[in-house]
Design a protein around this nucleic acid. Structure first.
Lengths: 161, 161
DNA sequence: AAGAAATAGGACCTCAGGGGTCCGCTTTCC
DNA sequence: GGAAAGCGGACCCCTGAGGTCCTATTTCTT
């Protein structure tokens, strides 16, 4: 049920990039070592996270001296689901993804085969409706335990009761 | 992002119990070896699943010869979330559960601290709104790829776009 | 032109936890 | 009293996440 730690780190790194003005286009860049120092995450790990984010098209790397990374897209256009997929693979609670064949021995007699699809869809939709920006927005004043601003309130209203 | 295999097995076992008439109350019981044969899951594993389900109050065991298990509650009163919690622990995508303190070194500077709470709530609500019965209901005719009956359709409508 | 600084892309190691099995005890029916 | 079942726990194995490091490549600076 947990997602990988790298996904968690990725959100932090993306938030930091935005906070530091490493915006899409001609913006400034941030180095991996710099981000490691700023976030408290070990430097090799930050480098790994940035490489994966680059592969997913969420950040773009600038090579060479004075290089670094900047956001490829503004965070309010990046669904959380996309980050999760980049690090954890397809979003699905069970191994039998969307009626996928093979892999499961008991497929022929399994009484719940295919039944998980709506559940997976529900999770996917929830995670697609939340942007990374909603998780990354800096807080003023600090340490509001349960901020009720519009961006995060949207996450709650994604689910009807 | 995946839940444990035992959770998956649990849903199958619960479905089988209902299908075989091991209903709450004075109903018939099913033995662990019998369920193993019926579901194709290894017998020791089925036994383990049933023990955990018993601990969670979802099935009740009848000891002694001619003993077995029966459902403690009808499946339409059991939210999927409850099964998941029994096997996977609290439902949360990240280690920092609901602003939980401790555990995370970077807590002081983490820009997304507490921000995951609405996401976790969304997942929890989605999984609480789906009953095990919706996953277990036998299908006639077999192999409808995407059944649109009321029980599972509810899962999709849990999420607004 | 040489060197420094940075990303890119792997290979590699370690280890915690899930997954599965087994054993001994207790309970209850025949 | 014996057999059949659940109950509770200990135990092992092995995958895969998590993390580190090395090398190649690129590009700026001097």
């Amino acid at each position: 049920m947990r997602l990988s730690k790298l996904t968690d780190y990725a959100v932090v790194v993306l938030a930091r990039l935005e906070q530091d003005g490493a915006a899409p286009g001609k913006g400034q860049v941030q180095t991996a070592p710099g981000l490691a120092a700023a976030t408290g995450i070990a430097e090799p790990t930050v480098a790994k996270v940035l490489k994966i984010l680059g592969g997913a098209g969420l950040v773009e790397g600038v090579r060479g001296a004075r290089g670094g990374y900047r956001l490829a897209r503004t965070l309010d256009t990046v669904p959380l689901a996309q980050v999760i997929v980049a690090f954890d693979g397809p979003i699905a609670l069970t191994a039998c993804v969307d009626g996928g064949m093979g892999g499961c021995d008991a497929e022929a007699i399994c009484p719940v085969r295919g039944r998980w699809d709506p559940v997976n869809d529900a999770i996917r939709n929830a995670l697609s409706g939340i942007t990374v920006a909603a998780l990354a927005k800096p807080r003023f004043p600090w340490d509001l335990p349960y901020p009720a601003n519009t961006d995060t309130a949207a996450a709650s209203t994604l689910v009807a009761e």
